[in-house]
């Protein structure tokens, strides 16, 4: 086994091109568990900790934030919580403080687990993933097209994730997750929601209730049409309930050790109803997200 230590993005891409079987390691919170339990032995580890730019973020000219793949959750919460409230809420539920100090969104994307907590907020906020290879250059992949199967993504073997791009919240965002305790739980299922008031639209993301994280398109369209964006009248409870039903309908859960499919469908409808209710309340109270 080899341990590759690129110190720049260019070197990292070259190393990945030379050894497509090399496993990138950022926070290591997924990779090291596999190694410690000898689940597999990759030909090489490709350490991304020395590629400084991956742990930085910036404001782009198109108004979006570009957040490096290796910015840990703790810094997303601390530095970007106000502008990416949905992602920050999700990040706060990841593992424990020690895990949040190391774990990254890039790693969550790389693992592409249907239960990864970054995915629902990235989907709800229309994030795009910037990936790159030495041979073919940069690709921008919308979050909705990134996840292709259970622990599978659109990332090619010679590509690395460089950053994700997302607009700062222009309306309230929410995230809800079901688990057996407050810390250290993989989601039984989860739901992310973002209001996009300027185009009178809702974004959603379902976690851990289908082979991949996915949006609930029908629910989004239904609620966007029913909500009184201009008049800002209170949310009709029937609309919230119907939104919940439609959100659950978009899922395709299975029975597993963490919960049954039936439970997940029920929980999803409740989470969708609640997050819409909370977000709309925030919207009526002034528009931006109250909880950052």
């Amino acid at each position: 086994m080899e341990f590759l230590r690129p110190t720049s993005w260019g070197e990292a891409l070259a190393a990945k091109a030379d050894a497509p079987g090399a496993v990138p390691i950022a926070g290591g919170t997924d990779v090291m568990v596999e190694l410690n339990f000898d689940k597999h032995r990759p030909e090489a580890l490709l350490d991304l900790n020395r590629v400084g730019e991956l742990a930085t973020w910036s404001e782009e000219e198109d108004g979006r934030l570009r957040v490096g793949a290796a910015v840990p959750y703790a810094r997303i919460i601390g530095e970007l919580g106000g502008r990416l409230p949905g992602l920050a809420m999700a990040a706060r539920t990841v593992g424990s403080p020690q895990i949040r100090n190391r774990g990254t969104v890039g790693g969550n994307l790389g693992a592409a687990s249907p239960a990864g907590d970054s995915h629902p907020p990235l989907l709800a906020a229309d994030a795009e993933i910037e990936v790159e290879s030495a041979a073919r250059g940069t690709r921008m992949i919308p979050a909705g097209e990134f996840y292709t199967g259970v622990k599978r993504s659109a990332l090619a073997p010679d590509e690395l994730i460089r950053a994700f791009h997302v607009r700062p919240a222009e309306g309230p965002q929410q995230f809800s997750k079901i688990g057996t305790r407050n810390a250290m739980v993989i989601a039984v299922c989860s739901f992310g929601l973002a209001l996009h008031p300027s185009d009178q639209r809702i974004g959603t993301g379902i976690g851990s209730a289908a082979p991949t994280p996915r949006r609930a398109f029908e629910a989004e369209e239904y609620a966007a049409g029913e909500l009184d964006w201009a008049g800002r009248s209170p949310l009709d409870e029937r609309v919230a309930r119907r939104f919940g039903e439609l959100a659950a309908r978009a899922a395709a859960p299975i029975d597993d050790v963490r919960g049954t499919a039936e439970y997940r469908l029920h929980a999803l409808s409740v989470m969708a109803r609640r997050t819409l209710t909370w977000a709309w309340k925030d919207y009526l109270n002034g528009g931006a997200t109250a909880c950052a």
Binding site: F3, I25, G27, T29, L45, D47, N49, Q98, N101, R102
Partner: peptide, 20 residues
């Protein structure tokens, strides 16, 4: 749990080479 450059982390999840 140990401090790595001043931040508490699980030492079991840091690859040895990352501590270089």
């Amino acid at each position: 749990t140990v401090y790595l450059d001043g931040t508490p982390v699980c030492a079991c999840l840091v690859a040895a080479g990352q501590a270089e």
